[in-house]
């Protein structure tokens, strides 16, 4: 596709008064969300967080991942580097994984890669 170059970069002039008001509303909503959960969830939730390893083992033959291993580096469209991750989601009670590219410089990636490196050294 053709690329059109604008002569002047558009200055995003977010009105400071508007930005401030928005920020206030945003924080209020955030606080309200946290507070409501504190009340609602008196009882501790039961943990249901096991990583279903079986989902990964079969994944090379079926499922959404066909073009690489989870954890592989892949060049993304912007020319930067991203890492292939799986997102674990529940559909009803069924666990599923979905592929997702997360930029290499994201803290999530950093954390995992560091731990992997540490484990390798051990």
């Amino acid at each position: 596709e053709e690329h059109v170059k604008m002569k002047q970069k558009k200055v995003v002039e977010a009105d400071p008064a508007e930005a401030e008001e928005f920020e206030r509303e945003f924080r209020a909503l955030m606080q309200e969300s946290i507070d409501s959960r504190k009340l609602e969830m008196r009882a501790r939730p039961t943990l249901n967080m096991m990583i279903p390893m079986n989902l990964f083992e079969g994944s090379k033959d079926h499922g959404r991942i066909t073009d690489g291993e989870s954890g592989d580096d892949v060049p993304d469209e912007q020319g930067g580097n991203s890492v292939r991750f799986r997102v674990l989601v529940k559909k009803g009670n069924k666990q599923q994984t979905r592929q997702l590219h997360i930029p290499r410089d994201c803290s999530l990636v950093q954390s995992t890669k560091q731990k992997e490196a540490a484990e390798l050294e051990e």
Partner: peptide
């Protein structure tokens, strides 16, 4: 999102209370 310690896996988790 939180990542798994070893696998390249992430999940969504709520900050309150989980």
């Amino acid at each position: 999102f939180i990542p798994a310690k070893s696998e390249s896996v992430v999940v969504l988790l709520c900050r309150e209370p989980c």
